[in-house]
Nucleic acid binder design. Structure first.
Length: 111
DNA sequence: TCAATGACTGAAA
DNA sequence: ATTTCAGCCATTG
């Protein structure tokens, strides 16, 4: 793979990198910010390749605040630990006070 | 090339 | 209320 997929993925990485420490966002929020809120799956898929990027994928969860992608990390609770390390409370893969730590790119960044 | 899958989400039954 | 369906589109078999 060379040109990868670009555009969508690239933007996903870009936004993910903008996520402040101690905050989280959802795949749908990113997709929505990219103008394709129905492409949330692609966002998650993009995260699949985020390993080689500097993308803090652990800050991206589904709309429920559930760490659905934790299985993609090395350890079993690595993702959870990373989040807790940033001040985000996580219990059983579920982010506590999700709406409080939720970071919406099109809302915080933008406009 | 076609078919199946996936770190999701919202609407419909 | 819960369960099912459809759409998004790149990746993989």
């Amino acid at each position: 793979m060379k040109r990868e997929t670009l555009n969508f993925f690239d933007k996903v990485y870009e936004v993910a990198k903008l996520i402040p420490q101690g905050r989280v966002t959802s795949y749908g929020a990113i997709a929505n910010y990219l103008g394709a809120k129905k492409s949330a799956r692609m966002v998650g898929y993009a995260m699949n390749g985020s390993h080689n990027k500097d993308v803090p994928a652990h800050r991206v969860v589904n709309r429920k605040g559930l760490l659905t992608g934790k299985h993609h990390f090395d350890g079993t609770n690595l993702m959870q630990q990373l989040l807790e390390n940033e001040g985000v409370k996580v219990v059983d893969n579920q982010i506590q006070d999700f709406q409080l730590v939720f970071w919406d790119p099109s809302q915080e960044l933008n406009k």
